[in-house]
Amino acid sequence: MLEIKNLSVSIDGHSILDNLNLSVKPGEVHAIMGPNGSGKSTLASVIAGRDEYDVNGGKIEYQGEDLLDLDPHERAHKGVFLAFQYPVEIPGVSMTNFMKAAINEKRKALGQDPVVAKDFLKMIKEKMALVKMDPKLMSRSLNEGFSGGEKKRNEILQMAMLEPKLAIMDETDSGLDIDALRIVANGVNSLRTSENAFVVITHYQRLLDYIVPDYVHILYNGQIVKSGDKSLALELDDKGYEWVKEEVNA
């Protein structure tokens, strides 16, 4: 589903990703871990199409298509979703209106009619229950004045509404209390099918107790330097990153 080959990315001439490779198949969950500043969010942003990054080499193939050729909103229409590490506040636009616009744009791109208001309301209610979101937040300006945890939960709510094929979650667990973490993880698990895939960026093994990954990758110095199964996350939790760095630098 997602094939990243020898991807090199820089910003303002400063290299961040360097010959990175990653392969994700439908139905899989991949966890990406790595020290601060190692390039995890950069990878997520480049997949989603943020254009302030310069892609200097390599390619990203998604469902057999060259992803780098598409505008960010076109990637979204094709099922790429990014749960932001720092969700943005949109003044004056309610979550309800925002989601309606998002869903309708996607439907338009797929040649479908706009969603019927009744179905939309039913769906938003359902998904709100899934992440136990306070309905009051729906009519407020999107993310404006939301608490850190509310913002993160709102990202998952949007993910549930848009039903992506490839969902990238950038530190969705940071800032969540224990209960919220469980709610979000259950939400994600209930969305899992054999057709979609998740890339979960996290610093904490804790999340992976709930969302069990098929693979764990360590991103360091702009490359994936180590991959393994879920036991790799446990090992990191235990020993930190020093040993990985030593191995790489040796």
Partner: peptide
């Protein structure tokens, strides 16, 4: 703000 909207499918 624009990128956030783009990511959700809005041009």
């Amino acid at each position: 703000m624009l990128f956030y909207c783009n990511q959700r499918g809005l041009s």
